[in-house]
Amino acid sequence: MGAAIGPSTEIDERGLWPRFGHPRVGAYMSTRQGGASTGGFTSFNLRPQIGDDEQAVAANRLRLQGLVGRMSIRVDQVHGAQVHTVLPAHRQSPAETLPVADALVSIQPGTACEIQVADCLPVLFADLGGRVVGAAHAGWRGLAGGVLEACLARVCEQGGMAVDAVEAWLGPCIGPLRFEVGRDVLQAFGQDPSAPGVRFSAAPYAPAGPRWHADLAGLARDRLQAAGVRRLGGNDGSPAWCTVGNPSRFFSYRRDHPTGRMAALIWLDDRGL
């Protein structure tokens, strides 16, 4: 059987709005448009301390808070598989040391879980009962290391539900025609370079040796389906979702240096409490 219908996506001039099944669940994904930053960070860069003007970043983050109607909790992303559980009444200050993790899970209404990307894949989770939400940052290392499975397990643990009660939305990332990788990436996913499988296709010859194009979103979908998630929405691997191929809409670390960061957020509203 194929996956059941998952979250849909509404798009406007402010960004992408994933629509999950329960009315208590809200979600948002920024693009690079509509902010105060300039140069390579034009214009809605949401990451401080990467060379952008800090006043512009502060203005961008204030706009983000206004768009989603709440503050958010971030983590220090390290391409791993650790999951941070948001504690009750936690309000993160700008000077606070961020917890080291690549995913967040929350049962607390109000505060949003935020992860940041600029080619890596953002994945948002929510249960159909509107009790728990999660967000994961999945580059190839984190994906191969199990960050999605770890986030999914924490969502189920916190909400007390089975995997088939969880839906997931995949955001924009580097696309399957742009993500050139070496044999180390194939091996990280258990693929033999001589038989790379459907998610890796041969790339043009490079002096450093054989290269492949990797379908990051497709690999994530495979892993989520193998874990039991049936309701999947968002990134289907088509060109419109590719961060590298859409420079006016998305930041891309592989395409541009320097570059800003986009944010994917998910939260629980107070409705129904």
Rank of each mutant, 00 (worst) to 15 (best):
M161K: 09
G139D: 15
R154L: 13
T259R: 00
T111I: 14
G139V: 05
G69R: 07
A264E: 15
C120E: 15
A202R: 08
L67S: 01
R271N: 10
L148C: 03
A136C: 10
S8G: 11
F251R: 00
V75S: 01
R74V: 00
A56H: 15
H22R: 02
V78T: 10
G234R: 03
A168E: 00
D269A: 14
V83K: 10
T85A: 13
G26A: 12
A264P: 13
P48H: 10
G39E: 13
N45H: 07
G237I: 06
V163C: 08
W140M: 02
Y253L: 12
R70F: 05
C173N: 12
A203T: 03
Y205C: 09
G139C: 12
D76P: 02
T38A: 14
Q225V: 09
V166K: 06
I73A: 14
I115N: 01
I73N: 01
F20N: 03
R255N: 02
C151I: 06
E96S: 07
A153H: 09
A81V: 06
C151D: 04
H79M: 12
L186S: 06
L273E: 11
G6C: 02
A202S: 13
D12Q: 04
T31E: 02
R271Q: 09
D52S: 12
G237L: 11
A103Q: 03
G233N: 11
V57Y: 01
A202K: 08
P88N: 11
Y253G: 05
A217V: 05
T9F: 01
Q191Y: 03
L98P: 00
L16C: 07
L124F: 13
H90W: 14
T111F: 06
R271S: 12
T31C: 04
W17A: 06
G272C: 13
D164A: 12
P109K: 11
V105H: 03
L170R: 00
A227E: 02
C242Y: 04
A81L: 04
S238A: 10
G6A: 05
L152E: 00
T259I: 06
Q49I: 11
L170N: 00
Q33W: 06
R70S: 15
Y28M: 06
S201D: 04
L121W: 07
R221H: 13
S37N: 11
L152A: 07
Q108I: 15
P247D: 11
L46F: 08
R254K: 10
G197K: 13
G182K: 14
A203G: 10
W17G: 05
S30F: 05
I11R: 13
I115A: 07
A59F: 02
R131F: 04
W241H: 04
G6S: 02
C173D: 12
M161L: 13
L224S: 05
V83L: 09
D164T: 09
A3L: 12
P18L: 04
L152H: 03
C242W: 02
A203C: 09
G15L: 01
A81F: 08
G146S: 13
G80L: 03
D256P: 03
A89V: 07
I107N: 07
G260L: 08
R32F: 09
G66N: 07
G15V: 03
P210E: 13
D119W: 03
F179D: 05
L273C: 12
F20L: 14
P204L: 15
